[in-house]
Design a protein around this nucleic acid. Sequence first.
RNA 1: CGGAGUGUGGCUCAGUCUGGUAGAGCACCGCGUUCGGGACGCGGGGGUCGCAGGUUCGAAUCCUGCCACUCCGACCA
Length: 437
Amino acid sequence: MRLSRYFLPVLKEVPADVQIVSHQLMLRAGMIRQEAAGIYAWLPLGLRVLKKIEQIVREEMDRAGAVELLMPTLQLADLWRESGRYEAYGDEMLRIKDRHGRDLLYGPTAEEVVTDIFRASVKSYKDLPLNLYNIQWKFRDERRPRFGVMRGREFLMKDAYSFDLNEADARRSYNRMFIAYLNTFARMGLKAVPMKADTGPIGGDLSHEFIVLAETGESQVFCHKDLVEMGAPGPGVDFDGDLQPLVDQRTALYAATEEMHDEAAFGAVPADKQLSARGIEVGHIFYFGEKYSKPMKANVAGPDGTSAPVHMGSYGVGVSRLLGAIIEASHDDNGIIWPDAVAPYDLGIINLKSGDAACDAACEKAYAAARAAGKAVLYDDRDERAGAKFATMDLIGIPRQIVVGPKSIAEGNVEVKVRATGERSVASLDDVLAGLS
RNA sequence: CGGAGUGUGGCUCAGUCUGGUAGAGCACCGCGUUCGGGACGCGGGGGUCGCAGGUUCGAAUCCUGCCACUCCGACCA
């Protein structure tokens, strides 16, 4: 993409009361624009990152055996009356009437809809286990939206729902999501720690939140320090095999959110391993058994021929929130430092003197070569001052930048800059381009 | 939902207390000088001051109501 033809409304100033660094940087980098409290338009650069994060989530869900579908944003109130949640959910649910006066709602989650889909088609244990997920916009009318996309009212969520014949099988499904989440967050460069969590209005008795530690996090959390650096099992995991040992390894050490905190148990952790910190919740998984299948009559026949409510779990990832979490975890005074896997562009090309024949020619050559090598390239061909170009590339966090200026290109050289380290080196343009593929 | 604030060109803000025909910086347009880490000079365009009502000769400014947004707290798959 040529920057001269792109839409990248970077800002030099943001409102004084925007305190969270990720929110500031997303506004300054021209990624989002607020349209109403907790409601944002995703500008081109922000959308690119959102899509990359979404795709990583999708790939890891698929790898774990989940099946993607897409459920509507608008749901029928009648379904929620069946589960008993229509009245219980409160003012956080955005309620709407259609022209016929029928009650609709903008979905804050989709247990009811997915259960309705499931019960219409699945009647036998032979079709289990099943895990259906979608990545869809949700709306929760938060009393106090804040921190940009970290707590918006409208947000993009991946929500998965598992269906199993019994609790033992359901726990295996739960474990698959547990491991898939570790892998998902690790791919984005995040250290997410699974912690015992409260189940809240969704209900159930087994639940973990995945927490990214950050000073600006909204949750107070307590855990054993070793969990932070434990890492993820990686893509080689056999999701058809027994995942319990991997899960046990990560649940044996103490880790809990404030609601589930047990001071005595925490005190048993060696003092130098006790970590009390703030965290951002990026994922939340639940096993809740028959909570929805029973009232909604989602029954399946077992091997003995008798029908019983299916056992369910649900598994959420805050896709749009992840942008904020990643920026909180990875930035410096100059701007965002995107991990390679989620960077909006792989490579930046800075033409220090647009209009100079040698610079233009070298940049065009680099631009063509990089695209031919399959790289996503952002080429700053604007008639702008060098400082503005450097500042923009750093602000939006392009991982590697090729800098073409009249002095060095006269000798066939360019500067290569690494955003994360600030390291700069000089090399011949041809060598740099040869190294792209 | 309780408390506290803020709404003035595209952005960040001053002006409001003490009423008198709307400002700055940035951004934008033109010309010129510059140009290897967010340049400078000169000129220019752009705002019914959140909305409605009231007071007044006169309202961005005072009064009333409403709306929106923000911050602290409570709340929060």
